[in-house]
Design a protein around this nucleic acid. Sequence first.
DNA 1: GCCGTCGGTCAACGGCCGTAGAATGACCAC
DNA 2: GTGGTCATTCTACGGCCGTTGACCGACGGC
Lengths: 191, 191
Amino acid sequence: MTEPSARPTRAQQRRQSEERILTAARRIFAELGYDRTTIRAVASAAGVDAGLVMHYFGSKDLLFARSTEVPADELPGGTSDEVAEALLRSLGRRLADEPTASLAVLRSTLTNADAADRYRAAGAPQLNQLTEAIPTPDADLRASLLSAIVHGVIAERYLLRLTNLADASPEQIIDLLRPCFQSLATPPPTP
Amino acid sequence: MTEPSARPTRAQQRRQSEERILTAARRIFAELGYDRTTIRAVASAAGVDAGLVMHYFGSKDLLFARSTEVPADELPGGTSDEVAEALLRSLGRRLADEPTASLAVLRSTLTNADAADRYRAAGAPQLNQLTEAIPTPDADLRASLLSAIVHGVIAERYLLRLTNLADASPEQIIDLLRPCFQSLATPPPTP
DNA sequence: GCCGTCGGTCAACGGCCGTAGAATGACCAC
DNA sequence: GTGGTCATTCTACGGCCGTTGACCGACGGC
């Protein structure tokens, strides 16, 4: 009698609603940024009442925090060349999918101080890994520049929508960027 | 008798007030972005009433547009190497001064569609110049990537405030970026 | 010297937003 | 079956914001 799709249990229903709200929130935060996004709009997009969003997530800030939790993209260690290549692949991946979640973070990071803090914290491990793989005294600066390039390309493609960048294929982009990344990741040839 | 600083004429006073408002607006837009900036805050920072801001600029949008008018940084033509070097110098300059105006644009570009349009339009000539100097079929994409890197570095330094990047000297940054820029600006060596 | 012009202020309105809290009604443990 | 739990909604409040229009008072052309 208990058909699998018969009627969801209460817990299931709650999880379902939370998920719908989070999905809607991610989309709208990504489109509009933190400030222009309203709880009412998120609730309406999720087909629920604004009060429910408050009930589940406590506040707009907390909803935003939950919406923009990003599982850090693991970067395997290795030589500087390998890490550069891994970073390129990671960029390629982020250019290939529709980066809704990533966009919400990026867009809001630039207007919301808390978001910036969380983003910095979330990116720190990856940045450290990068730093450790680069065998120069200025490794930390080099790693930061690599990170800046990655973010710059993503921002320019999806936020500014520079047409050349928005239309190019991920492969083309990472191929052009490869020498760039290598020059930053590997020490200058000292003959 | 007409001491130069005796009493400003009416036109002078108006220009002075407009300038104070614009200066305050640029600073606050840069700090807070478009949405979080209120006309009242700008007016208060400029020592005038909010109504006056409306009176002079018509609306918040128009005030923003006037605040973020940026004289395009002229990029001299030349060989791809020369243009790459010129772009590096331009970046160095933007890293050296406190880039209030530039920041207001950048920060707001990422949340305000109109600002993005204007920014794209304002950057187009520079981008074209860059494209024409690069002697490859994919020159436009290369130029866009260069632009993305410039913006990425500025954003990461001033918006995200990645400490490594925020503390580094402009010279150090552009030295590290030089091979990067060259690899994008010049065609791959085809032996 | 008079009066229109104009820089500047003030108070107010309508709207939207985040948030709180009461109300409702279906589910589930006992 | 009964009572409580819980998902969900409804209504409302207080605040801030962009914008308006009336108002004031000093300047400057005539």
